[in-house]
Design a protein around this nucleic acid. Structure first.
Lengths: 337, 337
DNA sequence: TTGTATGCGTTATCAT
DNA sequence: ATGATAACGCATACAA
């Protein structure tokens, strides 16, 4: 693979067009009037040479930055991946490129290293996907030298970082209320890792239970994976009085469902299961998963919009909420009489 | 959110440490000997100011580039997301940062725009995730001015781009042979979008069928989503002689399965279904999905390794294959007598 | 071992 | 409307 390592610069274009370097810069930026004649020449030269402005040099001299960094725990899980997609889409539309920095460990040195790597680049701003504790820590470790916004799973304390969020609390609340309305005495909860206490799906669930005067069972803590749901469900199996379980995400839900089905308990006849997120597979499950739909791609777009308005208008709204929607399908119903 | 927009530069460090700018540069790069006394001072100043080298300026003067761009059709679907994760992991370990460029449309202008955006940055190299036709086109449109490697779904023609690939062909072949060995007369195929003819899952399936002298049914073409699998399965429903179907991915498989289940046909009793990829949900499906495991994260690591050796050693192997593995679970078995 | 000077590709300021 | 020239932050050749 031999390379043509002769990337043309603005001077090459100027030479070929027979104009000065500054004229080329002007037609490229379009901010200063240039005669049509020269403009044509320059454009021809640009096309012929395949000239591409060097963003590094641009940002060095002008301070104009065109890349935004996204900090995320991973790029695989649905919520993260879809949020990233939304961010990238909006960023690209606005003329930015996006850098992805995965923060895998909560070792402060690992967090610092990820931040250092990203901030070495000339950044217009940074976005942290704060769906978990690692995100919280990353956000806390971000220096104040660069605009930072967050994509969150809950409203953050006011006055801090502008953030877009999915109202997990409302989703958990609504799903639990729905289950209660079906006649269940209480609802168990298999939780994804928490961010801050008092927020998120778990606390919406809790609130609905308390409001209804129902007992609040101990939370079963899992991670994000189907197998993790399956594992914690073993505990559930020893509690035959369970008639409904709200899961922190759809993957957990199918793990839990599988555990029940393996011992011959039917869904929703014997136990109702509700997921969270409405991942693409949810509606194809058998039984189709009743779940709380979250539009992560839209969350990503909104998050970038916050950063975009900060960058262009100098400020942005403190937050931007989206309320999730309960999607009733087949996996939940009334308890057996 | 007021910002401390006073990012210290190397001269600030030099001043604070009472040394010349070049001395700072030397301790930072570590390539030239510096007396311990000055080194200490410099390091103290760096720590105190929170100095971070400006990668844009570095690459401008030295030509050393530290970012690699990844071109992908999306960041959501499992294969893409997991490959990206592997690339990022390996890149970060090697001191690179990764930029993500989503190529959404096969409009040549859109492809060119994505490439222009990415190549404006000072790139060490680029990686294109070539799982589909859009990837093929993107690869073709990449200029020869930057090192490019690919993460592919099949071996590419020799002599072109270094690439790591998952041997889809072998996977399709093996899965089909397995089904045939179970006693099925033939196997139907629900395909994901193709890249090049003659390669990939579909052609492995075809080869196994031909080798066994089995008839080769018309391919059912879908996209990647569960609903797409469900939709094309309606055609399958009208073909009661079908006893086995190999699906291009797991999401398609569950869509197909759902379609069968809705009309009361049981899996694997009435029809055997095999997926592809072994996504996390596959083993929690009911019945658990027999599928072809693909290690996309590893593919990502290998792909970056190709680029890494090119960058550091000046060359890299032409390709790097990983053979997928059939995971036998519950969704496929012998046909009914 | 350390410091000074030059230049990377571009924008912006200043003349013309 | 156009052209010369000075930065931008840094690495490096060269001088000391």
């Amino acid at each position: 693979m031999p390379l043509d390592r002769d990337v043309p610069g603005i001077v090459d274009v100027a030479e070929k067009a027979g104009v000065s370097l500054s004229t080329v810069s002007r037609v490229l930026s379009g901010r200063t009037p240039v005669s049509d004649r020269l403009r044509q020449k320059v454009e021809a030269a640009v096309a012929e040479l395949g000239y591409r402005p060097n963003a590094a040099a641009q940002s060095l001299v002008s301070g104009r930055r065109s890349t935004v960094a996204v900090f995320a725990r991973n790029t695989i899980r649905y919520g993260y991946a879809a949020t990233l997609q939304g961010i990238e889409e909006a960023a690209r539309a606005a003329g930015y490129v996006v850098m992805i920095a995965v923060v895998e460990s909560d070792d402060p040195r690992a967090i610092a290293a990820a931040i250092d790597g990203a901030l070495s680049q000339p950044l217009a701003g940074a976005i942290v996907i704060e769906f978990d504790d690692l995100g919280v820590q990353t956000l806390a470790a971000m220096p104040k030298t660069v605009p930072v916004v967050a994509a969150a799973g809950a409203r953050r304390p006011p006055g801090e970082v502008p953030h877009a969020f999915l109202d997990d609390y409302a989703g958990g609340y609504e799903a639990t209320k729905y289950l209660l309305a079906q006649g269940h005495r209480t609802v168990h909860h298999v939780a994804i890792p928490a961010t801050r206490p008092g927020t998120g799906r778990e606390w919406g669930w809790r609130a609905a239970l308390e409001e209804a005067g129902a007992s609040v069972p101990a939370v079963l803590r899992a991670n994000y994976s189907p197998t993790s749901g399956y594992d914690v469900a073993q505990t559930l199996l020893g509690m035959p009085e369970t008639t409904a379980v709200l899961c922190g995400n759809d993957e957990l839900a199918i793990g839990v469902a599988r555990a029940y089905q393996e011992v011959g308990r039917r869904i929703p006849d014997d136990v109702s299961i509700v997921g969270f997120d409405d991942q693409p597979f949810a509606r194809m499950w058998t039984p189709a998963l009743t779940t709380v739909r979250q539009d992560f791609v839209d969350l990503g777009r909104r998050t970038f919009a916050l950063l975009g308005s900060w960058l262009t208008e100098g400020h942005s709204s403190p937050d931007s909420a989206v309320t999730p929607e309960l999607v009733v399908r087949e996996s939940a119903g009334a308890p057996r009489a």
